[in-house]
Structures are given as structure tokens and as C-alpha cells.
């Protein structure tokens, strides 16, 4: 940031005042370059997660066990596309174009949530993703409805309204399987065993290893630390797991009377770093698929543009 402009100091002060009174920053307001960059990184990562997140579940649409489940899954995957679009729109208000965002994703220059680099091996995974992954997402996203950047907060409000359907359909799917055969119950448990730790990783590294958190909280972009949100998620999920009749695969998980919260073990943070770096089970597949969709769809975008420019399209 260059501070040579005599007006910058005044603008910075006005910005700080808006943040201090928990008011919102809007797109055409002046903002520090670091604030803008942090927002672009965070919102774009969030948008990419929604778009890439369509893949693990989309994998099962053609193999849904009933028309009811298929309709639900289609609606859910369509929602994820919508969530990605809300968030891309919010990112664009910060001066980055849609095409740039897509290209930064497929070139690996922006990230998406590591959870989507794990495979979906059975239909129970559709339920587990709804229950645990969307449940963790809700924990993350509800406080972001009050984030300091207006367009991001408004996108989060829309998303949170729709996310509740996602979690409930997942829980109901698992509950239905738990009332089924021993084999179905085993499928659910196996799925929960695979997704529990990656779900805890969704909140990001422990606070001590999350250097950006302090600044993000000072700017009102983040409202809670990673560890706070992780704790909240565990406390919410334990009674749900009991209701389902599944075991969460953590030998250290137990109620701590003194703290009024659950103690629990730490995920394998080395694995997390490996997945973030691109070495998870499905990283290459996910990006290759997105790239293929982008490149194979180019002629459609071009044809629509040509048609619009031909003057034949209806106004």
C-alpha cells in the first residue's frame, strides 16, 4: 500500500471507524489493500469449494437408490452450484473477474476446502457429507453472516438458509440406513469413520498455526477462531451421533464437566498439509474434471455470445 496520497490517512481512519462500530464495508468504499486481498483469497476459496464440492456427490446422482434420493441429491448439487455463483459474484465486487477466478482455480493458484479431495466410496457418504461436512460448513458460515464485507455477508445469509436442508437430508439418509440391515449400519459407520477427521480439518489449522486469524478478526472478516468453531462443531455433533447410533472414531472424545465442553483428539495435521499441498486422494482428479468442464463448455459460451451479438436474441 502506498501512503503517499494525502487522502489515504483520512480514508483509512474512516475505514477503521466503520469496522469499529461493526458496520459493513461496501464494494465502492475505500479499503486497505490487505483487506481486499484477504477477502479475495477467502471468498474465492469458499466459492471454489462450493463448485468443486459438486463432484464428490455428483458422483452418485446416476446411482441413487431411489427416485426420491435422486431428486434430493440433484437439488442439493444444484444448490452447491448456486452457492458458488453467489460467492463468485461477491468476489467480483472486489475487482477480480469471473474468468480469472476460474483460471486461478484450475491453475492451482487459489485453493478450495481440503475435504473435497476425499473420495465418496458408498451412498452412505452422501449422507455423511450432508450431516458432517455440511454441518461443519454451517458452523463456519453462520458467524460469517456478520462478516464486515457486505456482499460476502449477504451471500452467506442466502447460503445458510439453504444449507440447513443439506444437513437434514444427510442426517435423515443416515438415520434411514441405521434402521436397515446390519450391512447398511456397517456402511454408515465405515463412512463416518472416514469423514470424521477430515470434517474436523475443515476449520483449518489450530489457532497457534493460523497466523492470519488475528488480522482477519481485527478486520471483522472472521468472527471466531478455528479452534472455537471446531469445539462448537464437536459439541453439536456428539448428541447427533448418539441419536443416530454411530460411534465417532476418537478414543479421546469425552465430556469435560469442568469446561462444559467435550475434550477430543487432534486430526492428523501432517495429512492435512499434504492434502492442502495437492497430494490428497482426489486433488488431481477434481481439478482435471473442473478443467475439462471449463474447456468443453467454451464453445457454448462462445455460441451464446455470438447469438447475443447477432441481434437475433429477444430483448
Amino acid at each position: 500500500m502506498t501512503a503517499t496520497d494525502p487522502g489515504t490517512e483520512v480514508l483509512e481512519q474512516q475505514f477503521d471507524e466503520v469496522i469499529a462500530r461493526h458496520d459493513r464495508i461496501e464494494p465502492r468504499d475505500w479499503m486497505p489493500e490487505g483487506y481486499r486481498k484477504t477477502l479475495v483469497r477467502q471468498i474465492a476459496q469458499h466459492a471454489h469449494s462450493e463448485i468443486i464440492g459438486m463432484q464428490p456427490e455428483g458422483n452418485w446422482i446416476a446411482r441413487a437408490p431411489s427416485l426420491r434420493r435422486k431428486a434430493i441429491l440433484l437439488a442439493k448439487v444444484q444448490d452447491e452450484a448456486g452457492h458458488g455463483l453467489y460467492l463468485y459474484s461477491a468476489t467480483e465486487t472486489l475487482g477480480v473477474s469471473r474468468d480469472q477466478l476460474t483460471e486461478m482455480l484450475i491453475e492451482g493458484r487459489q485453493k478450495y476446502s481440503s475435504i473435497f479431495n476425499y473420495p465418496t466410496l458408498s451412498y452412505a457418504d452422501v449422507g455423511t457429507i450432508g450431516w458432517l461436512v455440511d454441518g461443519a460448513a454451517i458452523c463456519n458460515q453462520v458467524p460469517l453472516c456478520r462478516t464486515s464485507y457486505g456482499p460476502y455477508g449477504r451471500a452467506m445469509i442466502r447460503i445458510c438458509k439453504e444449507e440447513s436442508f443439506h444437513q437434514r437430508q444427510g442426517f435423515e439418509l443416515l438415520a434411514t440406513m441405521m434402521r436397515g440391515t446390519d450391512e447398511q449400519r456397517a456402511m454408515v459407520q465405515e463412512s463416518v469413520d472416514r469423514f470424521w477427521w477430515p470434517a474436523l480439518m475443515m476449520f483449518g489449522p489450530p489457532d497457534a498455526d493460523s497466523p492470519n486469524t488475528v488480522q482477519s478478526m481485527a478486520w471483522g472478516i472472521k468472527r471466531n477462531t478455528n479452534d472455537d468453531l471446531r469445539q462448537r462443531f464437536v459439541d453439536m455433533t456428539v448428541p447427533q451421533a448418539e441419536a443416530l447410533g454411530v460411534t465417532l472414531p476418537d478414543p479421546d472424545l469425552r465430556w469435560n464437566e469442568e469446561r462444559g465442553a467435550h475434550d477430543f483428539g487432534q486430526p492428523d495435521w501432517d495429512e492435512f498439509m499434504q492434502v492442502v499441498k495437492g497430494n490428497g486422494p482426489c486433488n488431481r482428479q477434481r481439478i482435471a474434471h473442473r478443467r475439462r468442464a471449463w474447456e468443453d463448455g467454451a464453445w457454448v459460451r462462445e455460441a451464446a455470445t455470438a447469438f447475443a451479438e447477432s441481434g437475433l436474441s429477444v430483448r
Binding site: Q78, G82, L85, Y86, S89, A155, E162, T305, A308, S313
Partner: peptide, 24 residues
């Protein structure tokens, strides 16, 4: 105002708006 989107022309903008902003 509920948000924004990209579209080639007015007709597809309307179609996309229905799909993105009025699914429920």
C-alpha cells in the same frame, strides 16, 4: 436487489436469475 450474475443476453439473464435466485 438479491445479487448478480453473468449472461450472454437479457433472455438468458432472466433464465439464469430464475435458476440461481428463485429455486425455492
Amino acid at each position: 436487489h438479491v445479487g448478480s450474475l453473468h449472461a450472454a443476453d437479457d433472455a438468458t439473464a432472466m433464465q439464469n436469475a430464475r435458476d440461481v435466485y428463485t429455486r425455492r
